[in-house]
C-alpha cells in the first residue's frame, strides 16, 4: 500500500504554510503532502480552518507555476454555501461547471436555449443524484439538500481528477449521503473533503487530517485513527 502511494505523482507539497482569513490567522505551520489517487477527509470543529485549507489547496492548484500542471488538468470545488446563482435553473447552474471549456458564444446561446448535448449529459448526472425532476426549477426555490446536490452535480459535471469538497453532505439526509459519497468517489480520482460525520469519514477516506485552531493535530491513514484522537479535536 505504502509503496504504491509513493509511485503516484505528488499533487501538493506544503511546507510550514500559513494562511490568513479576514485579517486573522486561520492556518499556521501547515506541512502536508498530497498524492494523486488519495481520498482524504478533513475533520475538526468549526473554525478549525478546514474551509481555509480547502481554499488554499484550490488556489495552489490554479497557480500557473505550481509544477503539477500536467497532472491537475481540472479541479472541481464544492462550496459549503453551494455558490449557486439562485435566479438560474438547476440545469444552468450545473452547466456553469464547464463555462471555461466552451466559447462565449456557445455559453450565451446555451443560456437562451440549452443545447441537446449539454442537456443529455446533465440529465444523466441529475438522475444519479435524484434531481432530474428539478432540472428546470430555479435554484432559489430549492430546499437546502437539493441546493447541495445541485452544487455536487456541478462539480461532477466539471469532472477532472481532483475534487475539493467543503461539507458536501451537510444538508443531505443520512440515507442519501452514502450514495452520494459513493458517486463522488467513483467520479474523482483524488478527493479532499471536509466532513463532520465520523462514520462516513472512516468509510470513504483512506487518510484523515485532524485540524484544530488552524493547526494540523494529526495526519494519519484511516486505520490508524482512533476515536480518542477524534475526541481531542472537539474536546481539548
Amino acid at each position: 500500500m505504502k509503496s504504491d502511494k509513493l509511485q503516484n505523482p505528488l499533487l501538493f507539497d506544503l511546507v510550514d504554510e500559513r494562511a490568513d482569513y479576514q485579517n486573522k490567522v486561520a492556518l499556521k505551520r501547515i506541512t502536508l503532502k498530497i498524492r494523486q489517487g488519495e481520498k482524504i477527509a478533513l475533520m475538526g470543529p468549526s473554525g478549525a480552518g478546514k474551509t481555509t485549507l480547502l481554499r488554499l489547496l484550490y488556489e495552489r492548484s490554479q497557480l500557473p507555476l505550481n509544477g503539477y500542471q500536467n497532472v491537475l488538468n481540472e479541479v472541481a470545488y464544492v462550496d459549503q454555501h453551494y455558490a449557486l446563482v439562485s435566479q438560474l435553473s438547476v440545469l444552468h447552474n450545473v452547466y456553469m461547471g464547464r463555462l471555461d471549456r466552451n466559447s462565449t458564444f456557445f455559453n450565451l446561446r446555451n443560456l437562451i436555449r440549452p443545447q441537446k448535448t449539454v442537456l443529455t449529459e446533465i440529465e444523466l448526472i441529475l438522475t444519479d443524484l435524484n434531481m432530474e425532476q428539478q432540472i428546470n426549477q430555479t435554484t432559489g426555490t430549492l430546499s437546502g439538500g437539493q441546493k447541495q446536490r445541485t452544487a455536487i452535480a456541478r462539480a461532477m459535471y466539471k469532472g477532472g481528477n481532483l475534487l475539493l469538497a467543503d461539507e458536501p453532505i451537510s444538508s443531505i439526509d443520512v440515507q442519501q449521503a452514502g450514495a452520494i459519497l459513493d458517486l463522488l468517489c467513483q467520479n474523482a480520482e483524488t478527493i479532499v473533503m471536509s466532513l463532520h460525520n465520523v462514520d462516513f469519514a472512516m468509510k470513504y477516506a483512506q487518510r484523515i487530517i485532524g485540524l484544530r485552531q488552524g493547526e494540523i493535530l494529526f495526519d494519519q491513514p484511516t486505520p490508524h485513527v482512533t476515536l480518542t484522537m477524534l475526541d481531542t479535536l472537539y474536546n481539548p
Binding site: 462550496d79 454555501h81 449557486l84 456553469m96
Partner: peptide
C-alpha cells in the same frame, strides 16, 4: 457567492452572463 462556483479559466463575458447578470 455565485462567482465562487465558476471555473477559473472562464472568459469575462461568460462569467458575467452566468455569475453576475442573473
Amino acid at each position: 457567492q455565485p462567482l465562487v462556483g465558476i471555473p477559473t479559466g472562464t472568459g469575462v463575458i461568460s462569467r458575467f452572463i452566468y455569475g453576475v447578470l442573473p
